[in-house]
Computed example of a mutant assay.
Amino acid sequence: MKIESKTIEEKQVASISHIGPVENMRDLIGELISWVMKKRLEITGPPFVVYYTSPMEVAPEKMEYDVGIPFQGKITDEGKVSVKILPQHHVLSTIHQGPYQQVGSVYGMMMEHIFKEGYEIIGVPREIYMNSPGEVPESELLTEIQFPIIPESIMKDADLSIEFFNLKQNTESYNIYKIGEVKLENSKTYLKILEPYRPAIKNLVDFSHVMVFWWADKFASDRYRTALRTKLPYATNRQSGVFATRSEYRPNPIALTTCRIIEVDEKGGIIEISGMDAFEGTPVIDLKPYSPSFDRVKEPKIPKWLSFLWPQWKGEY
Rank of each mutant, 00 (worst) to 15 (best):
Q12I: 09
N24W: 04
L86P: 04
Y119H: 15
Y249R: 02
I285C: 06
Y197G: 06
Y100W: 05
V297I: 14
L92G: 06
L92I: 01
E31T: 14
K168R: 11
G108Y: 01
I150D: 12
Q312L: 15
Y290I: 00
S240L: 15
M130W: 11
S274H: 03
F164R: 12
T143G: 13
W305N: 05
H96S: 11
L309F: 08
S15H: 01
P253E: 08
S139L: 07
N203S: 11
V242L: 11
I122K: 14
E299M: 07
P21C: 08
E61A: 08
P55F: 13
G108D: 09
I262P: 12
S161D: 15
N170Q: 12
D277M: 08
S274C: 03
S93W: 00
G123S: 08
I271Y: 02
S161P: 03
S240Q: 15
L194E: 13
V264P: 01
L32N: 00
P21F: 13
S307Q: 14
V103Y: 01
K178V: 08
E248C: 08
Q88P: 05
R225S: 09
H18P: 01
V103S: 08
E135I: 00
D206V: 01
I162P: 03
P21I: 13
E152C: 07
T44Q: 13
S93D: 00
M63Y: 03
N131D: 14
F243C: 09
D277A: 15
H89R: 08
V210D: 10
P55L: 10
R223G: 04
S5D: 07
I150R: 13
Y190E: 10
L191T: 12
K231G: 09
E112V: 04
G20L: 01
E64G: 03
V50H: 07
Q146L: 12
D77S: 11
K267H: 09
M1W: 11
P253D: 02
L41I: 00
S291A: 06
P289T: 01
I128S: 06
D265R: 03
W214N: 02
K62C: 09
V36Y: 02
E78R: 03
L141K: 02
K192E: 15
L32V: 05
V124Y: 14
K38F: 13
A220L: 05
F213W: 05
Y107E: 06
P253Y: 06
L204K: 03
K178A: 14
H96Y: 04
E9T: 04
A227E: 05
V106Y: 03
M111C: 09
E172P: 00
V81L: 07
M25Q: 13
S307A: 15
E9N: 07
I3P: 02
L160C: 11
A216Q: 04
P303A: 06
L256W: 07
R225C: 02
T245L: 11
E135H: 00
